[in-house]
Design a protein around this nucleic acid. Structure first.
Lengths: 229, 229
DNA sequence: GCATATTTGTCCGTATGTATA
DNA sequence: CTATACATACGGACAAATATG
């Protein structure tokens, strides 16, 4: 890769290379694109031209295509033969399906959990705290991210790396919905305290009640998102 | 692609191209390799040389690498930087994790199912019948495939395309275990009638009993596989 | 531990086919 | 219907990392 052509985005990630195990260019490129899609600067429906993206990121088209394959497999991109790749646009059926999976994973995780390990409790509390803090400073994007992290931590209670990964992908897909919503800003706000309530019940050891609270949250969030589509 | 170099495997799949929607070369190559891995002719631990495979299948290294990315994302291959790709070798922790997911998916699907649609009942009965038939003819490989298809159909009861896909991948990963077992032949035999029993209970509308039978099956299968590793 | 051979990682150029203005 | 743009797929090149003797 030519130094000159290496983009700011890639150099920004270059530092991470030496840390947690090296990674290929394709993986780093996919990480960059994943971030851009999740965060919304690459909105649903957008076509990602091989030429444009490869030149923008300073990588060859071959390498970029490898990255595209990864992201298409994660359902963040759709690959249409001979037409190119597009940022995924969710249909209402996708949304109901995603919430079906969330119910299975999240309710299952809480139901089957016994004593919650201290580090997992810490993660749950941190997510709630960060959401509250972001809300007081009107950083609604961060509120959404923190709320997502709360439910990611819920999924972690299952103690399964594969379930955690599925949950990651589910939440990433859900982000696609927010980017087509009229006002995604305040969407997450009412859920901060509902998550806090779930945590409170979990800490109290009231498993059944926390399952019920979580189920109620999922029902309401799905309904609200469906209405917004 | 040169006609001359196009392998028998690829030409065998060429017919499917015109049918259910076209697909890229990388996708067809990944389908071929996936089949070979699942069926066992590419055993766990084997390194897949880019040169050897690309020449054998008559595709370029670039295209093959795209296929590798897909299969690595499905956990059938592991990609080690600068070392190449290997057929995945499962550790005991992988097995317990896979069964954790199977419990979540299969028990969840049965638990939440109301009236079972006729076509899904047909699929379940067909799987049981095929397993029995294969057993009478000592085709133990096919018995395993049929049993897998039974549980795939159980997962389908959830009515979620994404859950079905996760289940597909989970079962594909589980296949990797069979290929390192001493005697995989008769492993599936005792489970034919246990699956039939689950089906009988489902047909009778005895949800709770079928969940219990299914849970028992999962416990025993996991224990037996763990012991075999 | 070193020198060498092999293989992967990545890039480029190009021919062909497909979709679309 | 033609022209153009673009994706698909290939082959070759070379550096860098790894395996081998």
């Amino acid at each position: 890769m030519t130094e000159q052509r290496e983009s700011a985005l890639l150099t920004a990630l270059a530092g991470e290379r030496t840390l947690l195990g090296r990674s290929s260019t394709a993986e780093r490129v996919s990480a960059v694109l994943r971030e851009r899609i999740i965060e919304g600067s690459l909105p649903p429906g957008l076509r990602l031209s091989e030429d444009v993206i490869s030149q923008a990121l300073g990588v060859s088209r071959n390498t970029l295509r490898e990255a595209f394959r990864l992201l298409a497999h994660e359902r963040l991109l759709v690959h249409e033969l001979n037409r190119g790749v597009f940022v995924r646009r969710l249909a209402p059926e996708d949304l109901t399906d995603l919430f079906r999976i969330r119910r299975m994973i999240e309710l299952g995780a809480v139901q089957s959990v016994g004593v919650i390990p201290p580090d997992q409790l810490t993660a749950l509390r941190a997510a709630v705290d960060q959401a509250r803090e972001a809300a007081t400073e009107d950083r609604w994007g961060d509120v959404g991210t923190a709320n997502m992290r709360f439910h990611q931590s819920i999924a972690h209670l299952a103690g399964s790396p594969r379930i955690a990964e599925v949950m990651d992908q589910v939440l990433a897909e859900l982000r696609l919905v927010f980017h087509v919503m009229a006002d995604p800003q305040r969407f997450h706000e009412p859920y901060i305290e509902r998550n806090a309530e779930v945590l409170r019940l979990l800490e109290a050891g009231a498993t059944a009640a926390s399952v019920e609270a979580l189920a109620g949250y999922l029902d309401d969030a799905e309904e609200q998102l469906l209405a917004a589509m």
